[in-house]
Design a protein around this nucleic acid. Structure first.
Length: 432
RNA sequence: GGAGAGGUCGCAUAGUGGUCUAGUGCGCUACCUUGGAAAGGUAGUAUGUUCUUAGGGGCAUCGCGAGUUCGAAUCUCGCUCUCUCCGCCA
């Protein structure tokens, strides 16, 4: 969430920003609640101060009847005011949590996702001397995915991934883990992008796949709840992205500045109900209730936050380029970046089977919007305590990148060329 | 799942209703002492919020939340986490 002090001092800009994000919140009401709340808080503090005085006077013995009577009077007043405070506080917090993060000035203003701006296109759509097929055809024919049996066991939007496709996924995971946990690689990627950032490698993590309600909410990723799986009988949800469990990992902690930037590479299965997408992307494994993902997450000081975002984008581009995939980069507009974001980039990879670019990556920069509620802070060298900035970004969504590999690497006879960098992880094979 | 013990200031501990604005030790910081250091001494040592021109003050925080009370670290209830034992289990 935003700092209420920032909202007080920049109410107009906050209101405009909320409108630009298609997330209109009544800032005037919020400020009224804020002022009532503070007024009541002052009254409560004064009454408590009086009560503390009375308690102090009883030191060493029993209080007089007079003091007890005074105490009782204060207690009655406090009870009444505290009740009013609580009511207002609930409304205040509800409204405050609805205020979206401020978009950076560089984020294009837009009211639909069509207003995202393509900033870069790398490579050409793959050319074939035959009509390329989509991954669902090829993978079914090759015995790599079985959705019929999955439908029987779990319903739609699930699949059994089988055979060589499993090996391909493991190869990608191994390749990315090795690459991003290598400090010299990170330095190389940063230099290639002209970024002056730390070369701290990413630490591989296998995180828990469930998350408690309070942490999910603090990450500002619980809503819309319709898209989340809730576990019956426990205060737990299935995570929708490793970001959710990686970003909340250091809640309530204070880093030493020397520990930052702290970078993680999580490998986790993500779960999404895909509510409201009936009939959309039903072929193959593009949109599933469950998919495996390699996700990057980082914690930095405020000054390094945006460069960290650019580093993550550079890593995404590097990985896609290493696989030889044609892709394009989109700067997401205010409508599309999401409530906790200050800015966001999507990467779309060319899918010949669909004859279009489809989203395979996203990179989110949250400034201190998440860390404020998570209470994740850093002790600066100056001695100051500050909120950290958080970034998350997809390294690879395994399902989608395998679609891209299958469709871009297909041959006329239904084989698939393995990208060179992955071949060492597949026993040197060149084709699947 | 069952039984029990616990969660106190960075760390370790004391604290079973008012002298706790939480004691002590360690650590850390500054100063004194010293040729320098150690030892010793003195002072300080959290976070949030709010008021204040400043200096500083108020309030809250003893795992979290509710309750009892004039007054709660302390009593009651719920939750949570850790440890020990039993059961189950990859």
């Amino acid at each position: 969430m935003l700092d209420i002090r920032f909202i007080r001092e920049n109410s107009e800009a906050v209101q405009i920003n909320a409108k630009n994000k298609g997330n209109d919140v009544d800032i005037t009401s919020l400020l009224q609640l804020d002022s009532s709340r503070r007024e009541l808080q002052t009254q409560i503090d004064d009454l408590r101060a009086k009560r503390n005085d009375i308690v102090a006077q009883t030191k060493g013995g029993r209080p007089t009847d007079e003091l007890i009577a005074q105490g009782k009077a204060i207690k009655d007043q406090l009870t009444e005011i505290e009740l009013r405070f609580k009511d207002i506080d609930v409304d205040f917090m509800t409204l405050l949590k609805k205020v979206p993060n401020m978009a950076l000035a560089t984020v294009p203003v837009g009211s639909t996702e069509d207003e995202n701006v393509v900033t870069k296109t790398v490579g050409e759509p793959t050319k074939f001397d035959f009509k390329p097929r989509n991954h669902a055809d090829i993978a079914t024919e090759r015995g790599w995915i079985d959705k019929e049996r999955a439908a029987k066991v779990t319903g739609s939007r699930f699949a059994y991934i089988e055979g060589d496709l499993v090996k391909l996924q493991m190869a990608i995971v191994q390749y990315v883990m090795n690459t991003l946990s290598d400090e010299t690689k990170i330095a190389e990627i940063a230099a290639g992008a002209g970024l002056k950032v730390s070369s701290n490698p990413l630490k591989p993590i296998l995180p828990p796949l469930m998350i408690r309600t309070d942490m999910y909410d603090a990450m500002d990723r619980l809503e819309p709840r319709d898209d989340r799986y809730k576990l019956e009988g426990d205060d737990l949800w299935l995570q929708g992205s490793a970001e959710h469990v990686l970003g909340s990992m250091h809640a309530g902690e204070i880093f030493d500045e020397s520990q930052l930037p702290l970078r993680y590479l999580g490998y986790a299965t993500s779960f999404r109900r895909e509510a409201g997408t009936y009939g959309k992307d039903m072929e193959g494994i593009l949109r599933m209730h469950q998919f495996d993902k390699l996700e990057m997450e980082s914690f930095t000081v405020a000054q390094d936050g945006h460069n960290e975002h650019l580093l993550f984008v550079a890593i995404q581009e590097y990985l896609l380029a290493q696989l030889g995939m044609p892709y394009r980069v989109l700067e997401k507009c205010t409508f599309d970046i999401g409530k906790p974001n200050a800015c966001g980039v999507d990467m779309e990879t060319w899918l010949p089977g669909q004859d279009k670019y489809r989203e395979t990556h996203t990179a989110d920069y949250m400034t201190d919007y998440q860390s404020r509620r998570l209470n994740t802070r850093v002790r600066r060298e100056s001695g100051n305590l500050e909120l950290v900035h958080t970034n998350d970004a997809t390294a690879f969504a395994l399902g989608r990148i395998m679609i891209a590999i299958i469709e871009n690497g297909q041959t006329a006879d239904g084989q698939v060329c393995i990208p060179t960098v992955l071949q060492p992880y597949l026993a040197g094979r060149t084709m699947l």
